[in-house]
Amino acid sequence: MVSGKGGTGKTTVAAALALALAEEGRRTLLVEVEGRQGIAQLFETEPLPYEERRIAIGPGGGEVFALAIDAERALLDYLQMFYKLGGAGRALRRIGAIDFATTIAPGLRDVLLTGKACEAVRRRGQDGRWAYDAVIMDAPPTGRIARFLGVHHEVAGLARVGPVHHQAQAVMRVLKSAETAVHLVTLLEEMPVQETADGIAELRAAGLPVGVVAVNMVRPPVLAAPPRPEGDPAALAEALARAGLGGAAGLAGPLLAEGREYAARLALEAAQRAELAGLGLPVHELPLLAEGVDLAGLYRLARLLREQRW
């Protein structure tokens, strides 16, 4: 499960992780649940249908499949699989029951999304091997993740007996097992770091397994040491002039100001790193890809993740 505050790039990290885990002969499934078609955009393919299809070969030589889960289709699938509904499914749709179930009914949507992902986790091929070696979900944001993953617990409480109850309990067993990890993506900024800390506390309280913290879009340092902002503008202007820059006197002030901002940013980032280090989880860093994440950038991130043995 890959979660993170909005804007931290959790889809990118999830995709890179799916690629990284696709080692020789292994298969990973990358699952999208929020209907944004973010995976298709990242992999530069057509919008994904509700169907598991291969979208990439990992840098490790394995295969990456992707699935954009559509709650409505997942519900019909589910009904078909367990109840052999046939035409009744269409009747349900006609009277708006499916709409109700997937958009209005509390949590049912989340139930279906996590349920479908767990089905993929537990599926075996005809040879008896797992259908996927790893299933990676681009999950809802940190603020919602504990509730999203805990929905089956709630459902098991609502439906105290019957198939829904059992199904919900089975899903909770998978989610709480050691085979599941919720990774949280953050930036070196105050709010995402705070939200990460809050999310971890919530997940732990709910008994859900927390994985690692991935710090995304880390800006590479420009200098070996930050410039001292208290430099003398006149001396600085002389130095600039020595380097052949015209109008050096007018540049010294602005350059010093930029230097101060740079130093302030480094200090802020350092404080956030310290905060993250205090969370007691492994922390991995991924660099900012200046021109945004394209396919090549995605593979680069995947390679970095492999090198970090995430």
Partner: peptide
């Protein structure tokens, strides 16, 4: 700025 180069900085 090293970013696209994949290494997280100098």
């Amino acid at each position: 700025a090293g970013g696209a180069g994949g290494a997280p900085g100098a």
